[in-house]
Design a protein around this nucleic acid. Structure first.
Length: 305
DNA sequence: TATTCGTGGAA
DNA sequence: TTTCCAAGAAT
């Protein structure tokens, strides 16, 4: 738990130092969902302009559901993890097709979790930020705070229990926004405790920051990741870039991708064209790419050579 | 529980 | 330059 005094310190710190993010001016569940999906493993400053563009083009689930996946993937270019875009597109189609929902997103935890690409964090973020529900939102930022203030490493379940318990009654929206900002601005991987409203409540800080940092690998978030350069992720990314320009023969796509990958090809024994073919195969299996009669396109694009 | 899934800003 | 890691989810 956390004291009412500490809660007050957090909220008053946030009044003065909280970030000004555009999705904080809306309670539209669709707009909130787009922001949350885009922000998954992606810095919010990079999301802001893309969020405006996306919502202007597809302001409701219905209009997104009617768009081609290829157009959605193009709108996603540069954000990374394109399957987020595919899942969002699919979620929109589910919502539109379900007579019980009438084109609106579910407003229950279970309903949101049932949609592809929406997990424990995103579902609760929609509840807290669109519906102003008193639920705790656990992400990489709040997960660090919970572990450090508690002075011990937390599993995903314990982190969720603590996050829920910390929410001041009736303040779910502001509290979670504040926690996200404390985590992003102060309780960072390398902490900046000097101005932190929780400094006098934080077990880890009060004990003199002993090793190991309780936030490390805590709350089931912030997974350590493999190198990107030379990875299959990089290969798939370059292949999608090439396909975004328009359909081409498989040979053309392979040649263009190999060219785009040339700078990072040196460290790998397997020939680049073999890896590109493997990437195409994976992308097709994931439904992001369509291959027909030796023509490759983004899924949903007309296959004109 | 451990891996895999893109991209780019920041230190 | 390299390394880290960001409003996570799915498997």
């Amino acid at each position: 738990m956390i004291s009412a005094a500490a809660q007050g310190l957090v909220l008053s710190w946030w009044d003065r130092h909280g970030r000004d993010l555009p999705w904080r001016d809306t309670r539209d569940p669709w707009a909130v969902l787009i922001a949350e999906i885009m922000a998954q493993q992606t810095q919010v400053n990079r999301v802001v302009p893309r969020w405006h563009e996306f919502l202007e083009r597809w302001p409701t689930p219905a209009v997104l559901a009617a768009a081609s996946l290829a157009d959605v993937l193009r709108a996603w270019q540069g954000l990374g993890y394109p399957r987020r875009a595919a899942n969002l597109h699919r979620s929109a189609q589910v919502v539109v097709a379900d007579p019980g929902l009438g084109g609106s997103l579910p407003d229950t935890l279970e309903g949101l979790l049932a949609l592809p690409g929406i997990g424990p964090y995103t579902a609760r973020a929609v509840l807290a930020f669109a519906h102003e529900a008193d639920v705790g939102v656990v992400d990489t930022n709040t997960g660090r705070i919970l572990a450090r203030v508690g002075g011990r490493r937390l599993g995903a379940r314990a982190a969720q229990v603590a996050a829920d318990a910390w929410v001041p009654a009736g303040e779910g929206w502001a509290w979670n926004q504040a926690m996200l900002d404390v985590g992003a601005l102060l309780c960072r991987p390398v902490p900046r405790c000097h101005d932190c409203p929780l400094a006098t409540s934080c077990r880890w800080a009060l004990d003199g920051w002993p090793n190991p940092d309780p936030a490390a690998k805590s709350a089931g978030v912030s997974v350590r990741q493999a190198p990107y350069r030379g990875s299959m992720r990089e290969v798939r990314g370059r292949v999608l870039d090439v396909l975004a320009e328009g359909g081409a023969t498989t040979d053309d796509v392979i040649a263009s991708s190999v060219r785009a990958l040339a700078p990072s090809a040196a460290h790998h024994a397997e020939p680049l064209d073999v890896r590109v073919v493997e990437a195409l195969t994976q992308l097709e299996a994931d439904g992001l790419v369509a291959v027909s009669a030796s023509i490759v396109t983004l899924a949903g694009d007309p296959a004109v050579a």
